[in-house]
């Protein structure tokens, strides 16, 4: 008995030693930076004015952020971005997945093409869309002019109202394949017998979709909503490279504002405070989603 206990203790120790490298790495690259960011959010480093030195400012950074109109405007912009991304992205993802779920010739090639944008580096995606939206040589202007939809070339990213929509489209192009892959996996797991039984009972395609497909896909929809919300709240690279937050600040979403505050103004304390406030907002959304979907009994 005693020997068995000793062996178990030895196993536990061995397990700990084997895990130790991973623990150290995780601590160095996750725990320490998060802890340091939290520390930063309560301090003013005064990088631009080192004579003042580091100052502990308590919650002042958080208060300043919450009082700032720039912060709230950036939140409104990102909410618009997230809403558009969720509604259009998930609907589009589901629609394409339904089309691809049917056995057709060349389905594999189509799937590879559809998924292609997802494997591109975000900066490459941004550069492609920069070329597409180019006001003088861009593909979009050329296409729409050829089709007779527009008479004059449009400077898509120079108009504050259009710029955000253009960014959402570019982001959807890269983000939607993720939804497609998830939905395709979900569709494959739905038993065919249920559709066959429904067909025998005289159910239409719409009824089958509403009462068989959608309920089976609820966990996938939940995962999509959560993952897309988190990813879109953080959106930065495409905005940085296409509009830089302009025109007139109309595309300065939270990620862009945090970048500016931290790396352009060198106010790392306020930037860190913004990051933690963003974390709280995203957490709230995730909690709301989980309650909503729990009620739907996933």
């Amino acid at each position: 008995m005693k020997q068995a206990l000793t062996l178990r203790a030895q196993d536990r120790r061995l397990g700990f030693y084997l895990l130790l490298p991973s623990i150290i790495i995780l601590f160095a690259i996750i725990v320490y930076p998060i802890g340091y960011s939290l520390w930063l959010s309560f301090h003013n480093l005064n990088i631009n004015n080192p004579a003042k030195g580091q100052q502990f400012v308590g919650l002042q950074n958080y208060i300043d952020v919450l009082k700032s109109s720039d912060w709230w405007m950036s939140i409104l912009r990102i909410l618009y971005f997230v809403a558009a991304d969720l509604i259009v992205g998930i609907s589009l993802g589901l629609a394409i997945a339904l089309l691809l779920n049917k056995e057709r010739k060349g389905k594999g090639i189509v799937l590879a093409i559809v998924v292609f944008p997802y494997i591109l580096a975000p900066i490459v995606n941004s550069l492609i869309w920069k070329l597409i939206y180019d006001p003088n040589y861009g593909l979009l202007n050329g296409l729409l002019t050829q089709l007779g939809i527009i008479k004059d070339y449009v400077a898509w990213l120079s108009n504050p109202k259009l710029a955000m929509i253009m960014l959402i489209i570019a982001n959807l192009w890269q983000g939607t394949p993720f939804s497609i892959v998830l939905f395709l996996a979900g569709l494959k797991s739905i038993p065919k017998e249920e559709y066959e039984a429904a067909a025998i009972d005289g159910a239409s395609s719409l009824v089958s979709f509403l009462y068989i497909t959608i309920p089976h896909l609820m966990p996938i929809i939940y995962m999509n909503v959560v993952m897309k919300t988190i990813a879109t709240f953080k959106v930065f690279d495409i905005i940085y490279s296409l509009t830089g937050g302009g025109p007139g600040g109309s595309t300065t979403v939270v990620g862009m504002l945090i970048y500016k505050e931290s790396f352009e103004y060198m106010k790392f304390g306020q930037g860190a405070a913004m990051s933690f406030l963003l974390l709280i907002i995203v957490l709230c959304f995730v909690i709301i989603y989980s309650r909503m979907f729990k009620e739907e009994e996933l």
Binding site: S158, P160, G246, P247, M266
Partner: peptide, 16 residues
Amino acid sequence: HEFSSMLAEELHKALT
């Protein structure tokens, strides 16, 4: 840097 970034945004508000 803070001044320049702020001014660019305000100028853009007028230009748009």
